[in-house]
């Protein structure tokens, strides 16, 4: 279930849009924040409050990659392996994450600290390779630099 503050927030979100369905995307983000991922219960909660049928809500949610449909680690590492990043060694970085933190692409580290998502281009081709950790942006990555960055995320 949503916390009382989240419920209130959701009602405020709802009022910004002409109809309930239009409010689905921010509502699902809110649910993801509250539940950690979009579980069936999260969809039911959103559907219950917005009055949008749950099958429709799930259809919308599963369209977008940034909604997570399985439990995630405490921090989400999103690494780009598209052309520029790949040329500048992103795949080496994938191996590094695997060896150092036990992070498989699409998986979660055994300690639940990180989840790794492989991204398609985050618009940093000039400063590749690049990644996002939660909402923070990092570029010109090296193995050492990654190690330093991840140190800050517990």
């Amino acid at each position: 279930m949503f916390s009382e503050t989240a419920k209130k927030e959701l009602e405020e979100i709802r009022l910004k849009y002409p109809n309930a369905r239009a409010a689905l995307l921010p509502a699902l983000y809110l649910a993801q924040r509250e539940f950690g991922w979009l579980s069936p219960e999260a969809y039911e909660a959103v559907s219950g409050i917005l009055g949008v049928p749950k099958a429709i809500a799930r259809g919308v949610g599963t369209f977008y990659a940034m909604y997570k449909h399985k439990p995630m680690g405490r921090n989400i590492v999103q690494l780009c392996t598209n052309v520029s990043c790949m040329i500048l060694g992103a795949e080496r970085l994938v191996d590094f994450l695997k060896n150092k933190y036990g992070l498989e692409p699409g998986g979660t580290s055994p300690d639940g600290r990180f989840s790794l998502v492989i991204m398609e281009c985050i618009g940093a081709c000039g400063t590749a390779p690049a990644m996002l950790v939660n909402d923070d942006f990092f570029e010109n990555l090296t193995e050492k630099y990654i190690e330093e960055i991840l140190e800050k995320y517990k």
């Binding site: 069936p40 099958a55 259809g59």
Partner: peptide
Amino acid sequence: LGVISRGGHSHIEPF
């Protein structure tokens, strides 16, 4: 029913 996922993975599913 809803369309779940996208692109080549799109499929129809009940909730």
